[in-house]
Amino acid sequence: MKLADCVAEVEQQLQRAKLYFGHGTDNARDEAAWLVMAASGIDVGTFDGDWTQELSVQQLAETEKLVLERTRSRQPLAYILNSAWFAETEFYIDERAIVPRSHIGEWIPECFEPWLDPSGVQNVLDLCTGGGCIAVALALVLNRARFDAVDISTDALAVAAINARRHAVSDRIRLIQSDLFTALPGRRYDLILCNPPYVTDQLIDELPLEYSHEPEIAFSGGVDGLTIIRQVLAESRAHLTQRGLLVVEAGSAALAVENAWARVPFTWLMSANGESVVFVLSADELDTYGQSFV
């Protein structure tokens, strides 16, 4: 069977199983291609586009096994493969940390220009780092900057340590167990990034089964989804340099952010899929509107 035919067949199987796609892919076709290539030992990152290649009996057997595991367990494929792609980079992942899929990754290659001058970035903070993918991906671009990657979960930080070592940036990324800024007294950064928990209590109960394999702490944003975002907005200015920038993904709580702080001129960045769920605020803007967050 040709690769293209196998992908088409697996796509139909995934659709019939009524799976949810949102942990590295957003549709059955893309997930089928990823699954078949992984099962067949085809490197997704270097794939030459030869969809007509014939798959061996062994490759087809491995594909069938992987399809069964995905459909029966409802685990995200990223966990089954211990692999996830983020900001054009492959990362290790397991159930100790959320599967990386932050919209923030779209602006990492350009280092958040024009809102930030990359040449002036020396110190970066990645709050709620999870598996460390945002910090590591940005460290690969800002190769002179130093990073603090913070998470309340020691399990997640263990995954982040694996990724920092794999990408040879351990010497520039300090992993810190902390409840947000608690363990960072007096430290200031040119850039603070945060992909916090922002799912409301009600929405958590309605999430697809795939989400049940991820740490619930990575989602829980409280009654309105703003519990952590409020704290980040209230405390981040004290940890930014004078020309610093705050970047936060608000996700499903984006409208709640706008409603809660209607006077604040958030700059919302539009993702490739048309969503605007990541906002930026400069240190100057936080100076001006800081009382709104207290």
Rank of each mutant, 00 (worst) to 15 (best):
H239F: 09
E258I: 02
G251E: 00
V257F: 04
V248F: 04
A238F: 13
L240T: 08
Q242M: 14
A254K: 04
W261T: 04
S252K: 12
N259H: 15
V247H: 07
R243A: 13
L246D: 00
W261M: 02
W261Y: 13
H239T: 08
L246Y: 00
N259W: 12
E235T: 11
N259A: 13
V257L: 03
E249C: 02
R237T: 04
A260D: 08
V248Q: 07
T241Q: 11
H239A: 04
V257K: 03
N259G: 09
A256C: 05
L246I: 01
A260Q: 11
T241H: 11
A234S: 15
S236A: 12
V248I: 11
R237Y: 08
Q242N: 15
E235S: 12
A250M: 06
E235D: 14
L233P: 05
T241V: 10
L245K: 09
Q231A: 10
V232W: 00
R243D: 15
V248R: 06
A250L: 01
E258W: 00
T241S: 11
A256M: 08
N259R: 15
R237N: 01
G244Q: 09
V232G: 00
R243S: 14
G251K: 06
L245R: 05
A253H: 00
A256W: 04
V248M: 05
T241C: 11
Q231N: 11
N259M: 13
L245W: 08
N259T: 14
N259S: 13
L233W: 06
A253L: 06
S236Y: 00
A238T: 13
Q242Y: 15
L245P: 05
L255D: 10
A256F: 03
A238D: 13
S236P: 03
L246V: 07
L233V: 02
H239C: 01
Q231Y: 10
A234R: 14
T241R: 12
V248W: 02
V257W: 01
L233F: 01
G244K: 09
E258C: 07
N259Q: 15
L240Y: 10
L245E: 07
R230P: 02
W261A: 06
S236W: 07
V248Y: 03
S236D: 00
R230H: 10
L240I: 10
L245N: 01
A238R: 15
A253M: 06
W261V: 00
A253S: 08
L246T: 00
G251N: 02
S236M: 08
A256V: 04
R237W: 07
L240W: 09
A250H: 06
E249N: 05
A254L: 05
A254S: 10
A234I: 10
E249Y: 04
V247D: 07
L246S: 07
A260N: 08
A256Q: 07
R243K: 14
E249K: 07
V257R: 07
A238S: 15
Q242W: 14
V257D: 02
L240P: 06
A256E: 01
A256I: 02
L255K: 12
R230S: 07
V232H: 02
A238G: 14
G244C: 09
R243G: 13
Q231D: 12
E235W: 13
V247M: 04
G251R: 08
H239W: 09
